[in-house]
Computed example of a mutant assay.
Amino acid sequence: MELRIFTEPQQGASYDDLLRVARTAEDAGYGAFFRSDHYLKMGSVDGLPGPTDAWITLAGLARETETIRLGTLVTAATFRHPGPLAISVAQVDRMSGGRVEFGLGSGWFEEEHTAYGLRFPPLGERFERYEEQLEIITGLWGTPVGETYSFDGKHYTLVDSPALPKPVQSPVPVVVGGTGAKRTPALAAKHATEFNLPFPTAELAAKQFERVDAACRAIGRDPATMTRSVALVACVGRDDAEVARRASAIGRDVSELKENGLAGTPAEVAERLARWRSETGISRAYLQFLDLSDLDHLELVAAEVAPRLRG
C-alpha cells in the first residue's frame, strides 16, 4: 500500500510550513504531498496566517521538491473557470517535471464562497458545472498540438481554443471522489484514474467502490484500471502516552480516532490499514496530519508503519 500526505492548510499554515512538510515527506519516502483547496478555516481554530491558494502553493513546491508527487483533494469547480484551471494545472505539471495529480470536486463549503465573493449555486447546478469542467479540462489536455478544442455546454462554451499549454503527463492522473450513488461513479468511470473517499467507514467505502466498478463495466472499462483510495486522520505514537499527546494537540479523542481514523502505535495502525486493504481493496491511503509542526510524526509513520504494508 502506498502512503501519501494530506494537509488542510486553511486550518492555519503558511507556505513555508507546507514546504517543510512536503520536503520531510519527500525525504521520508511518501508517495505524494496533497493539500485541500479551501479559502476558509473550519471549526474553532484561528486559521492564521490565513488561507493559501492551492495551485500557487503547488507551483512553488514543484520547484522546491524533486520527486514527490503533488496534488489536491480536491479543487472546487466553483472556484475557477475550466479553461484557466486547465492552464494552471498543466503549467504546474511542467514546472514539476510531470508530478501533478488533479483532484476535482463540485464544491460544498458555502461559507467560504460567501466570505470571498464566490457564487455558490444549488447542488444540481454545481454538479452540472463539475461534469462540464472535467469534460473540458481533460478535453483541452487531450487535444493534439496544432488542433483546436471547442465545447458547447449548458454552463461553459469554448470556441476554437488552441488548448495550450500541454502538461508533461498524458494523461494527467485525475482523482474523483464522493458518495453519490449514480452520477459520481459514472463520472469517475469516464474521467478518473483514481476514486477517493474522504474519511469513510470501511462498509461505506466497499459499497461505493462496488458502484464505481459497476459504472466502469457499464462503459466497457476494466475496473482494475481504477485506483481505490481513502483519506484518514493519522495519530500515531510510539506508545499510548505519545498517541494521547498527539490527539490532544489536534483536539481529538483517542478512542474516537481509533474508531474513525488511524490511531495507535505503528503496529496497531499498520494492522488497521491492512484490514482496510483486505475489506475494501484500497491500494493507497492519504494520511491527514493535522499538526503540521510535528514533523517527527511524519517520519515515525514512514519508518515504522510503511514497511509493514509493503508487499
Rank of each mutant, 00 (worst) to 15 (best):
I5R: 08
T7G: 01
P9R: 01
Q10T: 00
Q10G: 00
G12W: 00
G12R: 00
A13R: 03
R20W: 06
R20A: 15
V21N: 10
A25S: 15
E26W: 09
D27G: 14
G31L: 02
F33W: 06
F33T: 07
R35Y: 00
D37C: 08
H38T: 07
G47S: 00
P51N: 00
T52L: 04
I56A: 15
T57D: 04
T57H: 04
L58R: 02
L58H: 03
L58S: 02
L58N: 01
G60A: 12
L61E: 08
E66Q: 13
I68Y: 13
L70N: 12
G71H: 11
T72E: 12
L73M: 15
A76C: 14
A76E: 14
T78R: 00
T78P: 04
T78S: 11
A90N: 02
Q91E: 11
M95W: 12
G97F: 05
G97P: 05
G98S: 04
G98F: 03
R99V: 02
E101L: 11
F102Y: 13
G103N: 10
A115Q: 11
Y116S: 01
R119M: 00
F120C: 00
P121S: 02
P122E: 11
E128W: 06
R129F: 09
R129W: 06
E132S: 08
L134Q: 06
I137Q: 04
T148P: 05
Y149P: 09
S150E: 03
G153K: 09
Y156H: 15
L158Q: 05
P162Q: 03
K166P: 00
P167Q: 00
V175G: 06
V176L: 13
G178F: 11
T179C: 06
T184I: 15
P185K: 14
L187W: 04
A189V: 07
F199K: 08
P200G: 08
T201E: 08
T201S: 15
A202G: 03
A202C: 01
E203S: 08
A206K: 12
K207G: 13
Q208G: 01
E210I: 04
E210P: 02
D213I: 05
D213H: 13
A215V: 10
C216L: 08
R217C: 02
A218E: 14
T227K: 14
R228F: 07
A234Q: 10
A234K: 11
C235L: 11
D239N: 15
R245W: 02
R245K: 09
R246W: 01
A247Q: 09
S248H: 06
S248P: 00
I250C: 08
I250T: 11
G251W: 03
E256G: 05
N260Y: 09
N260C: 02
N260D: 03
A263C: 07
P266G: 10
A267D: 15
V269Y: 04
V269A: 06
E271Q: 14
E271Y: 06
R272T: 12
R272Y: 01
R275S: 13
W276G: 12
R277D: 12
I282Y: 07
A285S: 15
Y286C: 07
L287P: 10
L290I: 05
D291C: 04
D291I: 01
L292S: 06
S293E: 12
S293F: 02
D294Q: 07
D294K: 02
D296R: 12
L298W: 14
V301K: 09
A302G: 14
A303H: 03
E304H: 08
E304R: 12
V305C: 10
A306H: 12
